[in-house]
């Protein structure tokens, strides 16, 4: 894979790939929540920005984190059951993950958090906001799952080959190869395969949405930015429209030339949008 493509990934107890020259020093921490060891990486100083990763897991400290860390204290947890964080065997829906993350924010004693959720992480972030938004300053939902689109369907990663699913997340599939090379690193495939086990444990049916979440969004007070890639081929833009319609203080920002994976298709634009939202 290209040398500068992927950040620092910790996997199976070792550093898998150290590529992006991270100017920002980062550290890993382990936060115990509900008898589970939850792992996170953080770097940078300033107001806290917490980024919740996708259902495919995290490939570590990446371009988006690096850009934001120049201005903020960026915290990237491995969601419970993903990466190195312990699996809550009892978890059955994204709301369970949200409750654990909420407790993690409490354990870290974070306030005025800008909570960023990417895809499935956006689903978790929205659930978290409906449950407890005391520690939140603002919310950024990027191509967030969680709501059933009124038209179209959310692409089902369980029915397609997994690399093909990720490929479809880019607006231009050539970017997949530019990022991952012509042959996918087996460890990255492993991470994706492993991540999807947790996804299947908490979002198998209904797939990637909740029938209860939409009814609670009207209570969310936190200012919310909904970001959608203009060429999102995974989750129909209508889900984004619904988030913007249902959350009282929300607006939708559509990023041109970006697919579902906005943070990889347009990291600069996304970082700017998040920074603006975090400093309002």
């Amino acid at each position: 894979m290209p040398e500068d493509a992927v950040g620092i990934v910790r996997w199976k107890g070792g550093e898998l790939t150290v590529t992006t020259a991270t100017a920002i020093a980062t550290q890993r921490r382990v936060i115990p929540v509900a008898d589970l060891d939850l792992h996170l990486r953080e770097g940078g100083d300033g107001a806290p920005v917490v980024i919740l990763h996708r259902s495919i897991g995290t490939l570590g400290w990446d371009a988006l984190e690096e850009k934001l860390a120049a201005q903020f204290r960026v915290i990237t947890p491995d969601l419970p059951g993903f990466g190195e964080s312990e699996r809550p065997d009892w978890a059955r829906e994204p709301r369970d993950i949200a409750l654990l993350v909420s407790r993690m924010l409490e354990r870290l004693d974070l306030t005025d958090v800008t909570l960023v959720g990417l895809g499935f992480g956006g689903f978790v972030a929205a659930e978290l906001a409906t449950a407890n938004e005391e520690r939140l300053k603002s919310l950024v939902l990027v191509g967030a799952a969680g709501l059933k689109p009124r038209e179209g369907e959310i692409v089902d990663q369980m029915l397609i080959e997994h690399a093909a699913y990720v490929r479809q997340g880019f607006s231009d599939e050539a970017r997949f190869e530019a990022r991952f090379g012509s042959e996918l690193h087996p460890d990255i495939k492993d991470i994706w395969e492993f991540s999807r086990i947790m996804t299947a444990r908490v979002s198998w049916s209904p797939y990637m949405f909740s029938r209860r979440l939409p009814h609670l969004l009207c209570e969310v007070k936190t200012p919310t930015l909904v970001v959608w890639g203009d060429d999102d081929r995974i989750i129909p833009k209508d889900s984004g429209l619904q988030y913007a319609e249902r959350i009282p203080n929300a607006r939708l920002e559509v990023v041109p030339n970006a697919g579902h994976l906005v943070e990889w298709d347009a990291p600069e634009e996304l970082a700017q949008l998040i920074a603006a939202q975090a400093t309002v």
């Binding site: 369980m158 029915l159 397609i160 080959e161 395969e193 999807r196 086990i197 996804t199 299947a200 444990r201």
Partner: peptide
Amino acid sequence: SPVLQNLPG
């Protein structure tokens, strides 16, 4: 189908 045989978990 490799997809079917690789269902997560």
